[in-house]
Design a protein around this nucleic acid. Structure first.
Lengths: 336, 336
DNA sequence: GATCCTCCCTAAAACGATTTAATGGCTCCA
DNA sequence: TGGAGCCATTAAATCGTTTTAGGGAGGATC
């Protein structure tokens, strides 16, 4: 049932119905009797305005696009939860597209979403090279692109927390698993770890650095990386992994090599994904407030949409948190 | 740049531009020269038709709504991946809403999505009581509702696989963790297990049945349930958990109680979520083809949208698969 | 010179809402 | 009786597209 039909049925003009239903100031010029008649009829026929027509007229869709690498890795899903909660609360909805790191899709999806008339874009862990005709907020984006606001973790602090914890436990020979080349946090996090290591006076040895390779969101990649570290032959008493998933894979590799965690090797994860707390051993990790980052991103985007780029900042920082569980312990004293 | 502006710029009518750009049969009546002029201008100005206007006119939005309980549990995310891949491939996009089991939202979200003019709805693990004005496909829905197609697992077979495996290993005292009351698979799966147990001649003892309670997608719930089982005092040598997440929580509870998995207790999960393979011990589980179920749901929905309810079936079944890993082993011989 | 094609193209009406300027009827006052 | 002013309502334009019926120009035919 359209507004026009409703109007015909009531023997009034569409304008009258629209004014009344939207309860605009001008509607006070409509007599109380008519107003009530309109409202009653709308209720009776369960009239719902057509969203598409309204969008066309108002040039507003109350929709935003969200681009993520992968739906089924804990990371994106948590950020997405935060995004969703804020958006729905504000009357927006969102379209999702996940590119699985395929460059073609990374290129195409923003354009597709913009063609769908989204009013803004949130890119989660996804590079965002070109300026776009709508406001963009990037979660864990680090490039300074005009019109793009980046929501980032305080990585300097994260590095301090991770290394400080291990150093405090007596670890000096620390191995690292870097993230995949395509992950936007990889470089920043690695720099943060190196710089923290420098500050703590801990050497970072080339033989003790492995990198995740491949796109699977499974611990397999961490498993492979950890095996490389073991194969390289340099001993270490602790590992800082790029994320919890790879930490879990690494622990499996260590176990298979006869190393106990944390007695022989301490492992620090990153993110504090759901899996971290309930793994055996439970993971010590650097928590990113992913849900809050999602909310912050959405909130920022809506502000950009409604208030314009005004005092747009390039970076919004959130703070990490060290969560100590079972996967870290004192460095073994009988180091070779 | 709108079509109208493009037309004005070219000194032709909007109709001409539309005909040419859409390359409809009627466009053959436009001279080649004009056609090329139009195409060139469109390219030059990077003209993109306004999706909203087009949707209004065509009464098609090429959008569907997806309702899930929770974005960040492996289950929904995997189904969603399948849905997404198929939808995008067919030129559709989707709006997501996650209700976190809140009855109000379960009630409201379908209506909200329909107001947004989605052409169909996919409900993942979400009850769907009322008939709706658009086609609906429910993943793991089991109620027969007019206009709703259910994509379901062959649970009878799943029960057979799980219990058959354990019985084959010599287990007779088997405990169960049922799903939460709100999960649409809970009843069906439980019935399947009971019936399989009957067929294998294994008793199902009330003291060996616990139920998940609470809404968190973390293993905590399984942990709590397993502790209840242990506290009940009846001995058992194997556990069939409602899903992998709760199996992981249960394993942690067993470990804390000094029980080894699988030496003292075998544990079978369900779903084969990412976590299953890389848990320590790796989970033996009943795999649901979640990604395929998502695809199947989306495919079915699009067929309903484009071809109408024609030969609509109430149920589409997919097959489970037993994945044997480390969490199950022979029943201990020294049973008390 | 009238009629009939053919070829190119366009006017105009949708789709379903919102919004602004205007209208008709009424009362009131001079 | 004519004009001012108010009240309740509406006509019409608009958003950007698609689509259908039809129109004008030019050439061929009788």
């Amino acid at each position: 049932m359209s507004l026009k039909e409703l109007a015909r049925h009531l023997n009034v003009s569409p304008a009258t119905v629209s004014l009344v239903l939207n309860n605009v100031p001008a509607a006070r010029a409509i007599s109380k009797a008519t107003r009530e008649r309109v409202l009653a009829a709308a209720r009776h026929f369960q009239y719902r305005p057509n969203f598409v027509a309204r969008s066309l007229r108002a040039q507003r869709t109350y929709a935003v696009g969200v681009i993520v690498p992968e739906l089924s890795d804990g990371y994106s899903a948590l950020v997405l939860s935060g995004i969703e909660d804020l958006l729905l609360r504000e009357g927006y909805m969102y379209l999702v597209a996940s590119h699985r790191h395929r460059p073609k899709l990374i290129e195409r999806y923003p354009a597709m979403l913009i063609e769908r008339c989204v009013e803004g874009l949130i890119a989660v862990d996804t590079p965002c090279e070109h300026p776009l005709p709508v406001p963009v907020v990037s979660v864990s984006g680090h490039r300074r692109v005009p019109g793009v606001t980046n929501v980032v973790l305080n990585h300097r602090r994260a590095g301090e927390l991770a290394l400080g914890h291990l150093v405090g436990l007596g670890h000096r020979r620390i191995a690292f698993i870097k993230g995949q080349a395509f992950s936007s946090d990889t470089e920043v996090r690695w720099e943060a770890m190196r710089s923290a290591a420098r500050r703590f006076g801990v050497p970072v040895q080339p033989g003790l650095v492995a990198q995740l390779e491949g796109e699977s969101p499974s611990p397999e990649l961490g498993y492979v990386a950890a095996r490389k570290l073991l194969a390289a032959g340099q001993t270490f008493t602790a590992l800082v992994a790029f994320n919890d998933i790879s930490a879990i894979g690494a622990i499996r590799a260590f176990r298979e090599a006869g190393l106990r965690v944390p007695e022989d090797v301490s492992v620090v994860g990153f993110d504090d994904a759901y899996a971290a707390a309930f793994h055996i051993p439970a993971l010590t990790t650097i928590r990113q407030p992913l849900y809050r980052m999602g909310m912050l991103a959405a909130e920022t985007l809506l502000r950009l949409i409604t208030a314009g780029p005004g005092a747009q900042r390039s970076y919004l920082k959130v703070e990490p948190e060290l969560v100590v569980r079972e996967s870290t312990g004192p460095a073994p004293s009988d180091q070779t």
